[in-house]
Design a protein around this nucleic acid. Structure first.
Ligand code: MN
Ligand code: MN
Ligand code: ZN
Ligand code: ZN
Lengths: 144, 144
DNA sequence: AATGCAAATGCGAATGATTTGCAAAAAGAA
DNA sequence: TTCTTTTTGCAAATCATTCGCATTTGCATT
């Protein structure tokens, strides 16, 4: 259960290595993604982007998110079944607790849960490729 | 980790009690939902419905799903970020393992995981309202 | 620095899932 | 049966996302 704000990974280098061109829109979008703590959706990323370069299009944001997702550079979430929201993949794995009143997203990590998931899948004859765990909760009144 | 095909709950009675009219389309959709083992999406429910009464519209399916969800009679899932899929809420809580190759949905239940989730939320000062746990996996080659 | 070409962009139109407005039909109380 | 309200079917609207295509850009090569 810990946060990890480590050193930024060099996505540009990774992109180049994969034979992908590093363009102005991509650079800007990557900057946005690596320098935020939250989980913005495409529209929010778009708005932050046009603040830096107002010629960037929403299509390019979507295309770039798909590209980065395929490269494993970002993760896509769909809290509440709403529009896709993103975060950079770098850093240790974590899951999310969503405050149903405020919409706040709290990150947490539990080895125990990860282990249990593996066990369950194995008991069913499966290997986990990925998973999604979202807790939707409300601030508790009780003393902690 | 067990299935539970118990006695069907009387949704019609519940609907009436809530002051909701019990119409032909609703009766048909409820029948479909209570008599299936899978997790159909709106379109699939629609197709099964018009087989019984070809005057039912897709809008009504969607409206009915929203109604039943609000009443807590069904659960809505969005596996893979695809279209909403539904199942009757009746029966004990369970989570899902999705076979990434076949799309098969396997249900499972683990008290341990449920407990752990509670603990985690509590440690963060929250009470869980609901949660979503989806494991995406592939049949393992290893001996079980 | 100029050239060439594939890759990426911006734009707007298309898509797919879901919702909505509205007149007509059906439910249920009286 | 009549009356009032809810629900329906249909078509059009919305929302998030993708796509087609002419134009621009990245970048490897002269
Ligand atoms: Mn996160
Ligand atoms: Mn299920
Ligand atoms: Zn996890
Ligand atoms: Zn659960």
């Amino acid at each position: 259960m810990k946060h990890a704000l480590n050193q930024k990974p060099d996505y540009e280098k990774e992109l180049r290595k994969a034979g992908v061109r590093i363009t102005r829109p991509r650079r800007i979008i990557l900057d946005i993604l690596t320098s935020t703590e939250d989980h913005p959706d495409a529209m929010k990323i778009f708005h932050r982007a046009i603040e830096i370069d107002d010629s960037i299009s929403l299509s390019t944001v979507y295309r770039t998110m798909n590209l980065l997702e395929e490269m494993g550079a970002i993760h896509r979430h769909a809290f509440n079944g709403g529009p896709s929201r993103f975060e950079q993949a770098h850093g240790e794995h974590h899951d999310h607790l969503i405050d149903v009143d405020t919409g706040d997203v709290i990150e947490f990590q539990s080895d125990k849960i990860e282990k249990l998931q593996e066990e369950i899948a194995r008991a069913l004859g499966y290997d986990i490729i990925h998973h999604r765990l979202e807790l939707y909760g409300r601030k508790s009144k009780r003393p902690e």
